[in-house]
């Protein structure tokens, strides 16, 4: 039986009717048309479905949508500021850390959760945080460089 729930995504509230077995990634993509978070492995291994819930990076493929009521969800579509792209997005472009782009939203959301908590991570901390995200074409060196550079830009900007 479908249940009406209110989701707070990127600062906007959405009322949707969902079955309890619907995962958050399906509701984001199919009901809210926010297709940044990807359905890939669907088992929690690849990180392509990563979104931020209450400040923490979580896997939307292993989260039931009915459990997200009352939580603040941020997806890649919601991180752009009034001045344009988020520093992480800019840094990914500048460092060539995006090729096909499929895994990029997941990686950026993971990196954002990391930088929000730890604005000055060393390489080991960046690698540790990103170790749950697979990238099959760009590789991981440039993504690490991009996160490092975004952290530096943010620090200098403050």
């Amino acid at each position: 039986m479908k249940k009406m729930i209110v989701l707070n995504v990127n600062g906007e509230t959405h009322e949707v009717a969902v079955n309890p077995w619907k995962t958050l990634v399906d509701v984001l993509r199919n009901d809210l048309r926010l297709t940044g978070a990807k359905r890939a492995c669907e088992m929690g291994t690849c990180g392509a479905c990563t979104v931020i819930m209450d400040g923490q990076a979580i896997l939307s493929c292993l989260t039931l949508a009915v459990e997200c009521e009352g939580h603040l969800i941020t997806t890649i579509e919601g991180i752009e500021g009034p001045d344009g792209l988020h520093s992480l997005q800019k840094s990914f472009i500048e460092n060539g850390a995006v090729q096909c782009g499929f895994c990029t939203p997941g990686i950026i959301m993971t990196a954002k959760a990391l930088l929000d908590e730890n604005p000055n991570p060393d390489d080991i901390e960046i690698k540790d945080a990103l170790s749950g995200n697979y990238c099959r074409c760009t590789g991981h060196i440039k993504t690490i460089e991009a996160v490092r550079m975004a952290a530096q830009t943010d620090r200098e900007g403050d």
Partner: peptide, 9 residues
């Protein structure tokens, strides 16, 4: 255990 995402959940 797992990745950062998994440990968050």
């Amino acid at each position: 255990v797992g990745s950062m995402h998994i440990r968050n959940m």
